[in-house]
Design a protein around this nucleic acid. Structure first.
Length: 311
DNA sequence: AAGACGAAAGTGGTTGA
DNA sequence: TCAACAACTTTCGTCTT
């Protein structure tokens, strides 16, 4: 039997960064996060949802809400003890034969624990890196959690071997951004982490392949609101850009091309059409592509969509 | 002088034999 | 595993506003 719980109507919030009205409320972390640009608008919101009361044991188990939220961004710093190889106890007395089997089992488990402790050591370095890069970029916590989870899996599969922790961390963060639909350009992560775009990209591909992550190419639309706000463009231009991208997608001139290039070119066209012109160079800097790419894409789009451009 | 344009050569990744 | 390839970048000279 399904009983619907009534919810209070939530007031509409607009993101100060990109003007987006798609704001998600994460009550377990008390955060108000813009789904468009990933900005954390408020990190102290109050849960206004109805109390979840339970009237019997079954309901209680279902509705249990206590306990701090689980997090992947903190590793366990537990100390581990080592069991020596000699068959003597701590006083140096020989261990009776009948207890040897037990000692053998203990050593076996000790080994297993040690494997996980090298992983913990790795995480001790990596997780602060992930946190540092993502907080300097203002990414929401959900992305960090995802990144930390991916990183753990990558370590277990030994994909991080032979890579620096910093670059592996940056790569998982890039992957996490895309999985959470808050895509950042490789360029942005490169700037925040002092690593080259090439290196992060290489590690990113290795991780995606190694973990068989299913990655969809991001839609050009995902970048528009952020680029617009960086260029101080108003909502009209943003709307126009999205229209152009939609049309371009229908005309199938999008596939195979970099979504960022499409977004940048559409933005350029929209800015000219709306009389809020930005130069190809300005947009190129913000989008992290060259003017040449913008030019090529924009020529194609203008040709295919029959748009008149007057410079 | 700044911005747009386009040619040409180089880079790094994907694909298919 | 390697060569062909498509997309993108870098660089640079020329044209336009």
């Amino acid at each position: 039997m399904v009983k619907k719980e009534t919810q209070k109507v939530e007031e509409i919030v607009i993101c100060p960064e990109c003007g987006n009205t798609h704001i998600s409320r994460d009550y377990t972390r008390a955060e108000l996060v813009c789904e468009g640009c990933g900005l954390v608008i408020d990190d102290g919101i109050i849960d206004q949802r109805p109390e979840r009361r339970a009237f019997d044991r079954e309901q209680q188990q279902k509705r249990e809400q206590t306990g701090s939220p689980m997090t992947y961004t903190i590793h366990d710093k537990g100390l581990s003890t080592v069991i020596g190889l000699r068959n003597t106890d701590s006083y140096g007395k020989s261990i009776p034969n009948r207890n040897r089997a037990q000692m053998y089992r203990l050593r076996k488990w000790q080994k297993r624990i040690r494997i996980s402790s090298t992983m913990e050591k790795n995480l001790t370095n990596a997780l602060p890196s992930i946190n540092r890069i993502s907080s300097s970029m203002g990414l929401p916590r959900t992305v960090r959690e995802t990144a930390a989870m991916i990183y753990r899996k990558a370590v277990l599969k030994k994909i991080t071997r032979g890579r620096t922790i910093e670059s592996a961390a940056a790569a998982t963060l890039y992957a996490a951004c895309r999985q959470c639909d808050v895509p950042r350009t490789l360029e942005e992560i490169a700037n925040a982490s002092n690593l080259s775009r090439k290196e992060i990209g290489r590690n990113y591909r290795a991780i995606v392949r190694g973990l068989r992550l299913k990655m969809m190419p991001p839609s050009p639309m995902e970048y528009v609101s952020r680029f617009c706000s960086k260029l101080k463009l108003n909502n009209d231009v943003q709307t126009k850009t999205l229209e152009i991208i939609k049309e371009a997608t229908n005309q199938e001139i999008v596939s195979g091309r970099s979504p960022i290039g499409i977004a940048a070119a559409s933005l350029y066209i929209a800015s000219v059409l709306c009389g809020e012109r930005r130069t190809q160079c300005e947009i190129a800097v913000v989008a992290g592509v060259t003017e040449v790419t913008i030019r090529n894409r924009y020529k194609e789009i203008v040709k295919n969509l029959d748009i008149e451009i007057v410079l």
